[in-house]
Each structure stands twice: as C-alpha cells, then as structure tokens.
Amino acid sequence: MPEVLQAETGSDADTDFHDGPYVILNDARQKQAHWVCHRRLITTDVSIRLQRPKHCGALPQPTLFGPYAIDADHVSGVKTLVALSDVHGQYQVLKTLLKAHGVIDDTGNWALKDGHLVMTGDMFDRGPEVNEVLWFMYELDRAARAAGGMVHLLMGNHEQMVLQGDLRYVNDRYRISSALIGRPYDALYDRDTEIGQWLRSKNTLVKINDMLFMHGGVSPEWLERGLTITQANDLYRKHIDDEKATLKTDPLLNFLFYKGGPTWYRGYFKSELDESQIDALLKHFGVNHIVVGHTSQTRVLGLYDNRIIAIDSSIKLGNAGELLWVEGSTLLRGKYDGSKSPLISD
C-alpha cells in the first residue's frame, strides 16, 4: 500500500493542491514516485508507466525511458526546425503555442514527425507548473525519437541555478512539496532522481544545420579560449553540481558558467558588439545564425540582419508567446494564434 503523510504546511483552504510525480531512488536504490494529492504525500512503487493515484487531479503519468544517452551536439539535414525558450513553468501557454503550430496534436502528443524542437532553457522557476513542463518535455523527448525526430533540451541559467541550490526564484507552491517529501527543492532534481538524471544528460549548446542554439549567447571571449561546442557541453555536464565558489576559482569554468558564458551572456542586446564581431563568431562556429533566449522580448526578434535571433518571447508572463519556425532557409515567426510571418530583422 502507498505510504501517506499529512502535510504540515500551506493553507488549509487550498485542498485541491496537487503536484508530482517526483521519481527518486530510495535507500534500497529502488525507484519510488512521490505524489502530492490534496496536500497529502502518496508514495508508490514505479513501473515503466507511472500510475497517478486516484483523486489527484491531472498530474503527469509519464512513461520512463532511461538510461539517458548524451545526444550529438552537431546535427545536419534537419528539414523542419522549431525553437522556443524561457517557458518558466507556464505549461498552458507552452501547450497552446505548440498545438497551434502542429508540433503536438489535440491530445498533447508529438505531431512534428521527423522535425526537431529546440528548447533553449529556463523551464524552471517563476511559474506555477514547472513540474508539468518538465514531464511534458520529457514525454516529447521520448515520442520525438520514436517518430524519427528530436527534442533538443538545452540548459539555461535557471536550470543551472536550481541544480546548484540557488532557489531565489522558485514558485512558493513548490515549498509545500519540498516540505512534504522531506527534501530541499534542488534535491528533488538531484542525481538520484529521474528528471535530474535526464537533465544532466542534456547539452548546453547545439549546432543544427547552419544555426547555433544556446540560452544566453557567446561573447567574443569564446574565440580567445578556443573552445569547441563539445568541450563546453562536456564541462557543463561534469561541473553542473559544483558549488559556485569552486566554479569561480577556475577562470575557464567561471567564464562558462557565469556572465560571459552561454547561459548568462546578454551582449547582443546592449550594443556591445559591432557587425564584424558578430561575423567573427559566426565564422568560428561555421553558422549563419546564433539563436538565443534569456533576454525577454515581446516577440521572436531578428538582430544584425537575422544573424542573431532572439526567441525569449516573454512566455514567462503567462499570457502568450511565439516560436521560431525554420523550414529550409526560411525563417518565420510562429505566433500564438498559429499564424506565421517572415522574420524581418530589426
């Protein structure tokens, strides 16, 4: 029988509070799923397809597919490519946008066939349905592979922050789940958890066709350091759990993980770079476009004659959003109502 614990935190009025599942290895190294149903903790055994407890809302019932391989960070020959960023727990906006453009069908299943979907980070923090977003992307990852497509989930600065214990932006509702399960919020995504293992297998940068994707951007300092994309991805995976103080003492890791690196850099939006510097970056990576999130816009935005494409369309506000749709060499803004228009550089 499932083990049930009564919540000691939160408002008694919020009896419809549901959260989970959190799949965690127990002391015997066996997987267990932890669900919060009406503010009670229910712990169940795990099979490949999780079974949600009765009377627990519409919580995800994912099919587990680990162990998780490290995907290639250089991909070519992709015909249809869709990208978005900075969802920040806005699950309903994410689903509405993807459904409007046929990335998923009416039941939320993968419908892009052999197309590729890129999420350039920041699923965590701020919004109220982070766990739903994570499991939804997890399910799309599995389903896309089965259909011959791919989901490229890149690590953003908020993934980095949560995994390293920086919880300043965590939505208050997750403090209830954390208290019930008896773990700090960051430990709900530790290496002994299903989502934690999945996230730690992911890249931070990926080159697809003639486009380089990441969360924040790369500064010209990258050229001085002579890093490859694969080297950077390996360093992120190796050091993602290191403490901030440790990372700061190493010049290369300090660059990668903080202000000048791919998860934090904002220089494209501050008039810091001229066109020759942008061209030098593109030439170094052998691409025609660098696609980034992190810096909020009101829409998908082209800069430097579309050399830089900004795809943080403020989904985090919970009202609407856009995506980038690439068909061959054609760049389109995918709007919230499902319509598309050419991406014209500002």
Rank of each mutant, 00 (worst) to 15 (best):
P2L: 08
P2A: 15
E3F: 13
E8T: 12
G10P: 05
D12R: 09
Q30G: 07
K31I: 04
H34P: 03
W35A: 00
V36M: 11
C37G: 02
H38V: 01
T43N: 08
I48R: 14
I48G: 07
L50K: 13
P53R: 12
H55G: 10
H55W: 12
H55A: 15
C56Y: 11
P62H: 08
L64I: 05
D73T: 09
Q90R: 12
V93F: 03
L94G: 00
L98P: 02
H101F: 06
H101K: 07
I104R: 03
D105I: 03
W110R: 00
A111S: 13
K113Q: 12
D114E: 12
D114Q: 11
H116I: 06
L117E: 08
M123V: 11
F124M: 13
N131A: 05
E132R: 07
V133N: 08
V133K: 03
D141K: 01
A144V: 05
R145W: 04
L153V: 01
N157C: 07
H158E: 05
M161P: 00
D166S: 13
L167E: 05
Y174Q: 10
I176P: 01
S177V: 08
S178F: 10
G182D: 10
L188N: 12
W198H: 04
R200H: 03
K202H: 14
T204A: 14
K207P: 01
I208P: 09
S219H: 12
R225F: 00
T228Q: 01
Q231L: 00
A232G: 00
R237V: 03
K238E: 10
H239A: 01
I240V: 11
I240G: 00
P251T: 07
L256F: 07
Y258R: 14
T263L: 07
R266T: 14
A280Q: 11
L281A: 09
L281T: 04
V287T: 08
I290D: 06
H294S: 11
S296P: 14
S296T: 14
Q297E: 13
T298K: 09
V300N: 02
G302M: 04
R307M: 02
L332H: 13
G334Y: 05
G338I: 02
D346P: 09
